[in-house]
Design a protein around this nucleic acid. Structure first.
Lengths: 193, 193, 193, 193
DNA sequence: GATGAATGAGGCTTCATTCAT
DNA sequence: AATGAATGAAGCCTCATTCAT
């Protein structure tokens, strides 16, 4: 499987660095190849085309992201606590990889519609995770029983995403992890019965 | 003043239509010129460059947007009611101009970092409006006294924006105006003392 | 109409020169543009793509070719004489434009299938001309009454084309016009009753 | 000798199949290797480069072709009969290997000038065969004594080749063997005293 | 003021060939 | 002898912007 070969990850990591440092439109395949330490043509042994690099990048990183959060959330009982884990780790993981934060919050958003549609599919996994917490919260009575799950999910994701994007736009000058309690509080209160 | 000449608005409106219908990356200057009924070169009598069209577009439309909402909000006394006016009219104005909704929620976001930074400056005006409501709500005791205004603003805007974007991605199939009460409720509860 | 603008012909003539001198695979668009004295992009104001240059080239030149020969043939009464005019002028026109001869006999034949199919359509016009002569010859009794027109056409064209190609491969060292009587004699005898 | 090892022929036959089925420009070395059931690198143990495959292909196939026809022609006495054998077997051998017919009549002609020049050298053997028939015909009085051998050869080859090419372009829909008498008649009459 | 023909820089991708195993 | 992963050169086309009319 291509995804398991070292060069696959090597190229994806190179793409993250190049896009973060040079910007989406300045991230030529040749620059990514150079950063990865391979020839231009080698890229195409592992990826169909440039678009495929970006989508794979998102799949790979977002996949780990969702899995990690899912695991950590499983250890908490209450939906409110799970929600805290979600917010906390979302911020934690962005702050652990500054390049990736720039790429996902800013650069990848200027990709064309095709790429964004495929990225959205990957994102669905994350949104499903949010839905699960919301459902379980409604059932346990932690959250309002007439919660519109779809709207609530949009509030949760919209808020977290906006906070993250603002942090990246401000060049990650402050510690986003410190914002987790405040964000969680705003969200959790909105969801309460 | 160029902004007041008929062709200035004519070109901006043409840009909105072309971008909404063809997408950001297919919105060439020549297409905008054709839609506006002027020659390519004429564009450059009214705008410095293509980037300037997009920023002016956002300034023009967002300016009217903020002004209208500000007026309507002024008629309400409580911060909670003002917040409702904000949400309601944000959705109302997007639903009144489907092309503009597509442009601001989807297409303009794939512009490069430079343009997005300048757009963000225009957006500040709107965010200030949110801040005002939040401040007045804190002062009146409607909202929690230890509200982190910055975070709260990000929740308000992030939520509204995410709801709007989701609606546009879903091709405006449902009536976004009907979502205003639910969105307001989620937000307002989050802000409560 | 684009075909009538001076730059259209200018670019086609440049293409003939470049292809003849550098060869089909070395005839980059930028070289053609340089030879034509225009910018690379200007090519694309007159032609859809590189393929379109080649097809237009063939259409333009072959069109004139067929028309001239048709006019000259009209002045002759007997099919045998018309056939002589055909052979004579085919050779004459190739010898008048050495570059074009190289392009049509050698270089254009290494184009891909798509281009060759479109070139074949243009060639049909020429083959129809041959068919007309053959038919009239059969009717007048100059040619055998059980002539298989299709086969006869293939002999006529195959022979003329082979003679022309051989002449070009031999770098046009001898005067191809002098071969017209011999070629005509071989062909005409083959067609006789 | 490399030519006698099984893989040599195996690769050439694979090349014929791939070129016939995918077309000249889609016949990458890797596809030929796959079809031959060897690794890409193995090709280069038997051939200097890709060009060498194509030329060897033509040599190999054309060599057999000429030899077979020469043998069959030897059994006939008169030049006219020998000419019939030539035409008949030329068509017969093309119709016996449809892939090879496509390759020699259509695909190999889009190779670059270098390859085509080398192919022409191989073709010389065949043309010499034609010359021999023509000479013997002139000597025996079957053909005109002032026959221009060079021109006559071009007529013979040009006609046969054009008939064959037309048949391949028409996807070998009809039986080319049935055309041999007609073609022979056209040619032989042209050569007569 | 208005036009629109002309400009020209810039990057993704393919594929013949090599060479360490 | 055989493999196949890795290499890297090379060119078509788009489109924002200019400027002579």
């Amino acid at each position: 499987m291509k995804r398991d070969k070292p060069k696959f990850k090597q190229i994806i990591d190179a793409a993250v660095v190049v896009i973060a440092e040079k910007g989406y439109h300045q991230a030529q395949v040749s620059k990514i190849a150079k950063q990865a330490g391979v020839a231009d043509g080698t890229i195409y042994l592992y990826f169909k085309n440039k678009e495929d690099i970006l989508i794979s990048l998102f799949e790979e990183k977002m996949g780990q992201f969702v899995e990690k959060i899912r695991n950590k959330m499983a250890r908490k009982e209450s939906a409110v606590d799970q929600l805290y884990v979600l917010v906390e780790n979302h911020f934690l993981m962005l702050s652990e990889d500054q390049h990736l934060a720039i790429v996902t919050q800013l650069e990848l958003r200027q990709s064309n519609k095709d790429i964004r549609l495929k990225i959205n599919k990957v994102l669905k996994e994350y949104l499903l995770l949010v839905d699960e917490v919301l459902h379980s919260g409604v059932e346990s009575g932690d959250f309002s029983e007439d919660l519109d799950i779809r709207l609530a999910r949009q509030m949760v994701f919209g808020t977290i995403d906006e906070v993250a994007t603002t942090w990246v736009i401000n060049e990650q000058k402050y510690d986003i992890n410190k914002l987790a309690p405040g964000v969680h509080s705003l969200i959790a209160k909105g969801l309460r019965p």
